[in-house]
């Protein structure tokens, strides 16, 4: 599985056949491979426990795979972890700011660990505080920050050394809707600056909105990948959902719809009729007319564009929310 990009030495991230088993035979990764071209926002989408965080831990040198290998910014993560660390910024799933230090102190220490110092560090810290709207809170200890502010500080810390690749592990989990929208805007802005971003998320909406290339992870493997639009268009067309006024007369309904050429995958369940059509807007009048001439009464009709949820369902055989609830917190 490769993305649309050029030769492998130009890739920002290349993961090959990663396998990782935790104690107690929990197989977190089961031969996971993908690659990311420079400057892309790449989304790893999957339910909790699918292996997203384990993948990030391996790519950021925190953890070692049992088998397989990876390069980040062209550097082998197993052979030269220290060089990889200089090339990447990392924002973990959980806010990891030092709660007892101020925003400015957090950023300063982070910069010092990358060997930045003196005036250069001071101006970089000031610049990041300004950019993330934390300048007013710079000298307050981070314990007093809101969840959204701590998250921004996390990202600012990940950017202090101007990394080539930024890892964002579930950047909006636990944020309120307003802070989430704020974070989305911030991530879009970063991607506009040519930074390669690997984003993990279990929010379908977030993946759809931010990622230009998306890989769906399930049980430690990539099950499919492509642009969000490609993945959705694989499903061919829109879903229409008709609520019938009566629960009987299924034979009549089938007879009526048989005459329509572009209505597929008709599913009847009680008073509910589901089908897939090429274009919802065009199909609805025809479907309604056919049902009416067949003597079937209709209560309501809705048309839905294919969602990533449908993509997920198709590739894994489970609905996304089912998979998400089925597993405990991710590793």
């Amino acid at each position: 599985m490769t993305t649309a990009s050029a030769s492998s030495d130009r890739l920002a991230i290349a993961a090959r056949d990663l396998v990782k088993t935790y104690r107690g035979d929990v197989r977190a990764l089961d031969g996971l491979s993908f690659s990311v071209s420079p400057g892309a926002v790449f989304g790893l989408l999957g339910p909790n426990g699918a292996g997203k965080s384990t993948t990030v831990k391996i790519l950021t040198t925190l953890s070692r795979p049992d088998a397989g290998g990876a390069e980040v910014a062209g550097i082998d993560v197993l052979r030269h972890p220290d060089r990889v660390r200089r090339a990447i910024g990392c924002v973990a799933q959980k806010s990891a700011v030092d709660a007892e230090a101020t925003g400015r102190e957090n950023l300063t220490l982070q910069g010092q660990l990358y060997g930045i110092g003196g005036r250069e560090l001071r101006s970089r810290v000031g610049e990041l505080l300004e950019r993330f709207g934390l300048a007013d809170a710079a000298n307050r200890i981070a314990r007093t920050y809101s969840g959204g502010m701590q998250r921004k500080l996390d990202i600012a810390m990940g950017l202090i050394h101007r990394p080539q690749v930024l890892f964002l592990d579930e950047p909006t989990t636990g944020l309120d809707p307003e802070a989430r929208a704020d974070m989305w805007a911030e991530i879009s802005r970063l991607s506009g600056e040519g930074l390669t971003i690997l984003l993990t998320t279990h929010y379908l909406e977030e993946a759809d909105r931010l990622a230009r290339w998306l890989a769906i992870v399930d049980r430690g493997r990539i099950v499919t990948e492509g642009t969000p639009e490609q993945l959705k268009s694989e499903l061919r067309g829109d879903a229409i959902h008709v609520e019938l006024a009566e629960t009987n007369g299924h034979g009549q309904v089938r007879d009526a719809l048989d005459r329509l050429v572009d209505v597929r995958e008709v599913v009847l369940d009680g008073s509910s009729l589901r089908a897939r059509v090429d274009s919802g807007a065009k199909a609805v009048p025809a479907v309604l007319a056919a049902l009416e001439s067949g003597g079937v009464k209709v209560a309501s009709v809705t048309v839905a564009r294919p969602s990533l949820d449908d993509v997920y369902l198709r590739h894994t055989g489970r609905s996304f929310s089912e998979a998400d609830e089925g597993k405990e917190s991710s590793r």
Partner: peptide, 13 residues
């Protein structure tokens, strides 16, 4: 618990 340790470990510290 706060993840501060892991954050340090992904830096060149």
């Amino acid at each position: 618990n706060r993840g501060v340790m892991d954050r340090f470990l992904v830096t060149p510290v």
